[in-house]
C-alpha cells in the first residue's frame, strides 16, 4: 500500500467506523471524470478494500463526489442531492470543471464551478484527475471533516470514538 492508501484506510477506521459511503453526482461533466471514479472501483485501485463504497442514495452517503461544472439543467438535481446527504456533507469537487468551470466556464447553460452554489470541502484539479489524485482528495476531505468535528466537540464523543479504534 502507498502512504496515501495507508492513511486513508486508517482514517476511515477512525472516523467512520470502518466504512465511508460515497454518492457520485454528475452535474454536467464530459464523462471523463466519471470514468476515473469508476476506475477507482476496478481491481487495480480497488477502493473497496479501504472500506469505501459507492451508494445509490444520498441519504446513505457521508460524502459527495461531484464531477462537472453545474449546468442549468442539473442545478436543481444537485441541490436536492446535497440536501438529502447525511452530515457532515463533505463535498469533493472532482476535476477542473467542478473546481472552477473548466473550459466551458460561464455560459447561458453552465454556471461554472460547484462552489457557485454549494460549499466545497476539497478541490481535486485535473482534466480528469488520475484515480490516485481522487483518492488523495477523499483522504483530505476526511481529515478536514475530522479536524472540524474535533475542534467543535473538544474531547467529546468524536474524539472518544477515535481512541477506541
Amino acid at each position: 500500500m502507498t502512504e496515501i492508501e495507508e492513511k486513508l484506510s486508517s482514517r476511515i477506521k477512525q472516523c467512520f467506523a470502518r466504512s465511508l459511503h460515497i454518492r457520485h453526482v454528475d452535474s454536467g461533466s464530459c464523462n471523463g471524470c466519471d470514468f476515473e471514479i469508476t476506475a477507482l472501483m476496478n481491481p487495480v485501485y480497488d477502493i473497496q478494500r479501504f472500506g469505501i463504497d459507492f451508494v445509490a442514495s444520498p441519504r446513505h452517503a457521508d460524502m459527495l463526489l461531484v464531477t462537472g461544472g453545474v449546468t442549468r439543467n442539473l442545478e436543481a438535481a444537485l441541490r436536492k442531492t446535497y440536501e438529502a446527504t447525511a452530515h457532515p456533507k463533505m463535498l469533493v469537487a472532482i476535476g477542473g470543471c467542478a473546481c472552477g468551470g473548466g473550459m466551458f466556464g460561464d455560459t447561458y447553460a453552465h454556471l461554472g464551478g460547484v462552489d457557485k452554489i454549494l460549499p466545497v470541502s476539497v478541490y481535486v484539479p485535473g482534466c480528469p484527475p488520475r484515480p490516485q489524485a481522487i483518492l488523495e482528495g477523499i483522504l483530505h476531505a476526511i481529515e478536514r471533516a475530522h479536524e472540524l468535528e474535533s475542534s467543535r466537540k473538544g474531547n467529546g464523543a468524536y474524539a472518544a470514538r477515535t481512541s477506541n479504534v
Binding site: 461533466s29 462537472g68 449546468t71 442539473l74 466551458f104 447561458y108 447553460a109
Partner: peptide, 11 residues
C-alpha cells in the same frame, strides 16, 4: 436528455 447541456457551441 440534455441535462449536461453546457452551451459548448456558443462558447
Amino acid at each position: 436528455l440534455f441535462y449536461t447541456h453546457r452551451g459548448i457551441e456558443k462558447r
